[in-house]
Write a protein that binds this DNA or RNA. Structure first.
Lengths: 404, 404
DNA sequence: CGGATTAATGCGGAACCCGTAATAAAGCGG
DNA sequence: CCGCTTTATTACGGGTTCCGCATTAATCCG
C-alpha cells in the first residue's frame, strides 16, 4: 500500500468515476455522485477534467427520467475514440488479435490458425508482431495510435515482470515476452495468463458482470484458471499467475501423471483417445486435427471407452474445482471450453464430483455455470486489461510502503 | 476500495507511521520518514498527534548513531500502556487466554485444559467468558480497560460477520460467536480462524517477520491453514477463512475419506492408530489421551505400521501443500505442530512429496521451514489481530465503492 | 565558545474534498 | 407568454492534508 498524498486521492476518485461511467453506461453526474458517494461538487470537477482530457463525452439525447421536470441530466459515457488498444490471445493452435476502442468494442480482428506448440520465443514473437501489424493496418489505424498491447497465453505467467515462466507455446522457460514485443513494436506491452484475461472479460461484459468474486475454468488445449478475488485478478506472490494444469489430482504416493493437465486437458484427452481408437480412419482424423470431434461424437453415441475418458477428466476437474471453492468460496464458477457442454459426460462427472466432495459447510456457496467464450472474447479481455491500466487504477502502481 | 478523502489519506499515513514504529521501533522520526517515504514534516505532524493520543512515547536513552554528531535523534516506540487486549485460542482439548499490552507483550495468561470437542456454543461461551474474566482479574486489569478481544478457533470462520460456520469445538453450525461473547462481556469481540492468527503472529514476531507472503500449516488435533498474501491475511469471498481440513487429497472417483482432515490430522491419526494397536496397554494409553506420544515413540523405534501411517499423512499433507504453493507461490511455508519434527517420518514424507509433485517452474519458489508454536504464540496472534485494528488499518474499513 | 552537523519543526503554497449557495435548464400552470 | 417549481450542475469559501523551504534545536568538535 502506497503512502497517501493528494495526487493519489485524486487518482482513486478519478478511477471510481471512470469505473462508474464504464459500468453504468451513459450516466448523469448526479447518479455518479450517488453511486460513488462522492459529493456532486467533486464529481463535477473530476468529470470536467475527464471531458477536458477527452476520455468521456456528453450525450444529450435519450433523457429518460421518470419525472421529466427540472433541468435535464447530461449523460456521460466513455469516449470510444479516446484510445485504441490491442489484445492478443495465444493458444497452441491459434493466434487471435483484436483491436478495440476505449469501450472495448472490437474494431478489427484477426485469427491466425497456426500451430505453435513449443515454438522458439523468437518465432512466436515474429508471428505476433506480424499479426498485430496486419490487424491494425486492416482497421486503418496507425500503430502509433495504439496505446497499449496485452498478450494472454497459457501457462505460468508473471504479469508484473512481463515474463512467461513456462508455457506450452514456448520451448524456452522464463521468456521476457513483454519486453521483447515492446522492443519490436515500440508500444507498451503487458502479458498475463490467458484465463485471467477471460476472467476480466467476463467481469466487464460477460457472465460475471459486476461480480467481485468468481472463478473461470477453461478447458481448452491446455487448462486455464482465472480468479477474480475481491474485485481484483488474483495472482500469487510476485504476481505469478497460477496454472490450473499444475493443480494435482492424484493422491500422494504416486508421483507420475498427477498434474491435472495430464488428465483433463484436451491435449491429454486426445493422446489417450488416440491410443484407444486404433482404427485407421480414426487415426486419420486425429492426424487431421479433428480428433476431438470424433471423441465427442463417439461419447454422444454411448461409446463406453470415450465416456470413460471424459468422465475421468470430469472427475479430476471436479476434484480440483472443489479444492478451489474450499479456498476462495466464490459465489460463481464459470466453466468454458468445447468439452464443457450441458449433458455431456465430462460436465456431468464434474458437477457430480464437486457436489460429492464439497464439505457441507460450503455446499451452497458456489453456483457453477457454463459459458461459451469465443477467442474474440478472450482477446477482448486482453484489451480490457490494457484499458484498465489506462483508466488509471491507482492501486496497481503501489509499491511497498516500507523499505527494509 | 473506498473513495478517498483527506480523512482517509491521513488514516493511511498514520497507519504507515504506526506500522513503522511497531516493526522497527524504537525509531527516530527521520528514519520513519525515509522508510515510509513521507516527508519529515508530515511524519513530525503525525507523530505529534500520536504522542498526543498516547499511542507512542519518546525514549531518550540509547542514542546509538554511528556518527554521533548533530542533534541527537529522539527515538519513538509504542506506548505499552496505550491499550490492553485479550487473545483466546480455542482448541479441542484446551482453551488458552492471554492478556497483552499494546506491544503484544503477554501480561497474563491462562490455560484451561478442557476437552471441548463438539460442545454446545453456549457452554463454550461460558468457559471462554470465565477464562477471560479470570485472566484479566489475575493481571489486576479491569475488564473495562480491555480494548478488544479476538478468539481464534479451528474450522470455517467468517471473520467479517463474526460467525463460525463450522468447527470441531461446536456442535452447532453458523454460530454467531463474536456477538454472543460481546453481549456477555460488553467488549468488542472478533473471531477468526486459528491458523490465520498464528500467521499474523509469525508475521509480527515470529519466523516470517516482515514477510508479505507465506503460508502457515499447523498439524494439531485438527488442521490449520493461515495464508498471508500481499501483506494481508487471505480470506475467501465474504471473509470466509478456508480450512485446510477441507482440502481434498484423494483422486476423483472415490467420494469417501477424501478430506485431508480424515488422513493427516492428529485426530484422524489417533483413530487409525487405535484401530491398529490393539494391545490392552496401548488402548489404555489412547483412552488416557497419551496415544500420540505412543505413536511417535513406536515410529521412532521403527514400527512399520506407525511409520506407514505417518508417511501416508505426510504424503497427503505434501500433496495439499504442493497445490497451495502452485496457487499462492509463497516464498515461505511454515509448518507447525507436534507431529512436525525434523527427521520424523511425517515430515520426511511431506517434503519428499512436495518436491516430487511441484512442477519444475515452481521448484524453487517456496522454502519450507518448521517452527514450533506454543499456544501462547497463537493467543498472542489473536491479540495482535485486535491490535492491528486499533492501529487503524484503513483498508479494513472500506466498503463497496459503487452500489449496484 | 563559535562552527559544523544533524534532527525536528514553523510557515506558506498547492491540491483536494465538501457544504452551501448560486446558476442553468427544463416543465407546469395560469 | 411568463413566472414558479423542480432538478442538475457549478462557483465559492472553508477546512484538511501533504510538501518544500527556511528556521530553530541540540549536540559534537576544534
Amino acid at each position: 500500500m502506497k503512502t497517501a498524498d493528494p495526487e493519489l486521492m485524486r487518482a482513486i476518485n478519478r478511477f471510481h468515476v471512470m469505473d462508474a461511467v464504464r459500468r453504468f453506461g451513459p450516466i448523469a453526474r448526479v447518479e455518479i455522485s450517488t453511486r460513488t458517494e462522492l459529493s456532486p461538487t467533486t464529481v463535477s470537477a473530476i468529470t470536467a477534467a475527464l471531458l477536458e482530457d477527452g476520455l468521456i463525452v456528453p450525450r444529450q439525447m435519450g433523457d429518460l427520467r421518470d419525472a421529466a421536470r427540472g433541468r435535464p441530466r447530461v449523460l456521460l459515457e466513455l469516449n470510444p475514440e479516446a484510445a485504441q488498444v490491442v489484445g492478443v490471445k495465444l493458444a497452441p493452435d491459434r493466434i487471435t488479435v483484436v483491436l478495440t476502442n476505449f469501450r472495448a468494442d472490437v474494431l478489427a480482428q484477426l485469427a491466425l490458425p497456426i500451430r505453435l506448440s513449443r515454438q522458439a520465443a523468437a518465432v512466436v514473437a515474429d508471428l505476433v508482431e506480424d499479426g498485430i501489424r496486419q490487424c491494425v493496418a486492416d482497421a486503418g489505424c496507425p500503430l502509433e495510435n495504439v496505446r497499449g498491447i496485452c498478450v494472454g497465453l497459457p501457462g505460468v505467467v508473471e504479469h508484473g515482470a512481463g515474463i512467461c515462466r513456462q508455457s506450452p507455446v514456448f520451448t524456452e522457460s522464463d521468456v521476457p515476452f513483454a519486453t521483447e514485443l515492446s522492443r519490436r513494436l515500440q508500444r507498451p506491452v503487458s502479458i498475463d495468463s490467458d484465463a485471467n484475461l477471460v476472467a476480466l472479460a467476463e467481469s466487464w461484459f460477460g457472465a460475471a458482470r459486476g461480480l467481485d468474486d468468481f472463478l473461470v475454468v477453461s478447458v481448452e488445449h491446455s487448462l486455464g484458471l482465472g480468479i477474480m478475488h475481491k474485485g481484483e485478478l488474483f495472482r500469487g506472490a510476485g504476481g505469478l499467475s497460477p496454472d490450473l494444469g499444475d493443480m494435482l489430482v492424484r493422491p500422494a504416493g504416486r508421483t507420475d501423471g498427477t498434474r491435472l493437465a495430464d488428465i483433463a486437458s484436451e491435449a491429454a484427452l486426445l493422446i489417450e483417445a488416440q491410443a484407444v481408437l486404433t482404427a485407421p480412419e480414426d487415426q486419420q482424423l486425429f492426424r487431421a486435427g479433428r480428433g476431438l470431434g470424433r471423441v465427442l461424437a463417439l461419447a454422444e453415441a454411448g461409446d463406453a471407452r470415450m465416456t470413460g475418458l471424459l468422465g475421468e477428466a470430469g472427475e479430476a476437474l471436479g476434484f480440483a474445482i472443489a479444492n478451489l471453492i474450499a479456498l476462495f468460496a466464490p459465489p460463481k464458477v464459470i466453466l468454458a471450453g468445447a468439452l464443457i457442454q450441458e449433458g455431456a459426460p465430462l460436465l456431468d462427472a464434474l458437477l457430480r464430483t464437486v457436489a460429492a466432495l464439497l464439505p457441507p459447510s460450503l455446499a451452497g456457496v458456489a453456483e457453477i455455470v457454463t459459458h461459451r467464450s469465443t477467442d474474440t472474447i478472450w482477446a477482448r479481455g486482453a484489451a480490457a486489461m490494457t484499458l484498465q491500466e489506462l483508466y488509471g487504477a491507482p492501486w496497481n502502481t503501489t509499491g511497498p510502503a516500507l523499505r527494509a
